[in-house]
Design a protein around this nucleic acid. Structure first.
Length: 172
DNA sequence: CCCTGATTCGC
DNA sequence: GCGAATCAGG
């Protein structure tokens, strides 16, 4: 994946909104959080409010791998996802499902985040099965937009749901 | 352990 | 310029 103008634009926006590098990487797809951070630095838009401030670091001469490779993990856990709404940062726990991210701020360079408010029984082979709302409440519904050739989700939600294996966190 | 951003440096 | 490896911290 290369940094197209649009991707950089999205990066800038999401970073400005306070999303973490890993979350931005997930949204963009095809890049690691390191790539995002590296890009952020190159764009000189590092600081963003306060997080892990900069206690002027200077150390090391990297490279000294005598360490033993850690075995791949096989744990299914819950992930903490932070979403910023205006100035309020919300923290929500998600199960590590293939679909675990629902951002209230849609990616602007993708189409229609307008759902058709379908109930579960109204779904068929061509409707986007992206869930909206809390399954325990009445507001819960599915996106329902056409998903004929884009899999279980519409084009918009597919972009969010399906990430390249490269970025996919070792969640299982 | 999980995560975060920051930095370095080989490519 | 890019991003993996690494560091430092929560």
């Amino acid at each position: 994946m290369n940094w197209t103008d649009e991707r950089v634009e999205t990066l800038r926006k999401l970073w400005a909104e306070g999303l973490s590098a890993s979350q931005i990487a997930a949204q963009l797809g095809g890049v690691s959080r390191n790539a995002v951070i590296g890009k952020v630095h190159r764009l000189k838009l590092s600081s963003r409010g306060r997080s892990t401030a900069a206690p002027a670091r200077q150390k090391k001469t990297v490279h000294a791998s005598t360490g033993v490779k850690t075995a791949p993990r096989a744990t299914t856990t819950t992930r903490t996802v932070t979403t910023s709404i205006g100035a309020t940062a919300l923290q929500t726990q998600f199960d590590a499902e293939p679909v675990a991210r629902h951002y209230l701020r849609p990616v602007e360079n993708v189409v229609v985040p307008i759902s058709r408010h379908l109930q579960l029984v109204e779904l068929n082979e061509r409707t986007c099965k992206w869930p909206n709302g809390d399954p325990l409440t009445e507001e819960f519904h599915f996106c329902g937009n056409d998903a004929a050739e884009t899999g279980p989700y519409c084009k918009y939600h597919s972009k969010i749901a399906f990430q390249p294996a490269s970025e996919r966190r070792r969640s299982r």
